[in-house]
Design a protein around this nucleic acid. Structure first.
Lengths: 199, 199
DNA sequence: ATGTCAAGACGAGACGTTCCGACTCGTCAT
DNA sequence: ATGACGAGTCGGAACGTCTCGTCTTGACAT
């Protein structure tokens, strides 16, 4: 029983790594995730297929890393004007805009698709991409709690889902258009629910 | 320019149709959607591949029809005990249970996946599978409005998303476990938001 | 310090496999 | 006789494994 002997990360070529992530991103935007192939990535990056298979377990993992690499150093902090409701409106409107952007829409749907049958990728997404965003939102809500704008015993995990769940639902199932007005309505109603005690 | 001459539906073999839908369902449960192939369906159903390609446009379409065929005659009516909040708790708990059922979880995720890159299938899903469920919920909320339990000018489309969005978000992104207690919390908070006027 | 050398990652691409979707048969029911 | 049917063939795309020969790197000997 020989374990498949893991490669040595210290000898990894940073040059190839970057070329792969860049090529993936380019192809993702050019042809979309469905028509993205490992062979095309390797060709574009000027890299052997084995180099991709050596370091990534799946097409989804490569995409995830390439997106993570791109979104590095994105400020994960929410505005704080002192008015939670106004700040949340800003955030929700920004999210709606992202959902309406064709490129981001496509990439996000692809990521979402891939997550469904890859638990490892799902965990990575939750911890490294989605997590920070949700935590930043919780931080802002906590600050609002501290100044009495929200119920002191509000469950923050539930709170963020109350905010992000509805637009997510509408976007993913395409039940209706996502507008700024809609974002504002959700914030109004969610904040109303979050002002009183949870039970 | 010869149009691809549509097949004649009146001569369609009901026997083959059922065999295909059944085989698809079986394979879906056995190997999951990702490893489901048209060739395997044809083999299992004792049918030529062309018979599948003749009547369905994609793997997703076959799956959708097979699920629709299964879920026929499912009562799409909500309980009405006179207490909206209690009735919604019942509904949300049932949804949580469905999400926690391994088979339904798998099928729903597969359907969800397929929707992301097939607009036609997405529309079918919205109109024929999801729509009735959402409409039934809206009906119940309308009745509650009529007896003054909810704000009279509440936007019902927003309302259903406020209820279903959060658990959907939690389930799809696997951010936390889905429990009955969680369902109850969501209902409590959503109803609180729905009691006052929307703005 | 400098030279030698084995380990292992690398680019390139051949290979066998799976599955797709179009197509071709001969059969069968209407 | 028409046209859907079961069965299966076919070229093509992409997969994931593999085998080359090359290049880099660190350990060791001189």
């Amino acid at each position: 029983m020989t374990p498949p002997k893991a490669p040595d990360p210290t000898r990894r070529s940073e040059r190839s790594r970057q070329a792969i992530l860049t090529a993936t991103r380019e192809l993702l935007f050019e042809v979309g995730y469905a028509r993205l192939t490992i062979e095309a990535i390797a060709a574009r990056a000027g890299v052997g297929k084995q180099t991709i298979y050596r370091w990534w377990s799946s097409k989804g993992a490569v995409m995830f890393d390439s997106l993570l690499d791109m979104s590095r150093a994105e400020g994960a902090e929410l505005p704080d004007t002192g008015d939670v409701e106004a700040d949340l409106r800003t955030v929700l409107r920004a999210i709606v805009d992202e959902f309406n952007d064709p490129v981001l829409d496509g990439v996000t749907r692809a990521l979402n698709t891939e997550i469904q049958n890859d638990p490892q990728l799902s965990a990575d997404m939750r911890d490294r991409l989605l997590g920070p965003q949700l935590e930043a939102t919780k931080d802002r809500l906590r600050a609002a709690q501290a100044v009495g704008q929200l119920a002191p015993d509000l469950d923050l995990s539930v709170a963020v889902e109350l905010l992000f769940g509805p637009p997510f639902h509408r976007w993913l199932l395409r039940t209706a258009p996502l507008t700024h007005e809609y974002a504002d309505t959700i914030v109004t109603m969610a904040v109303r629910a979050m002002r009183a005690a949870p039970r």
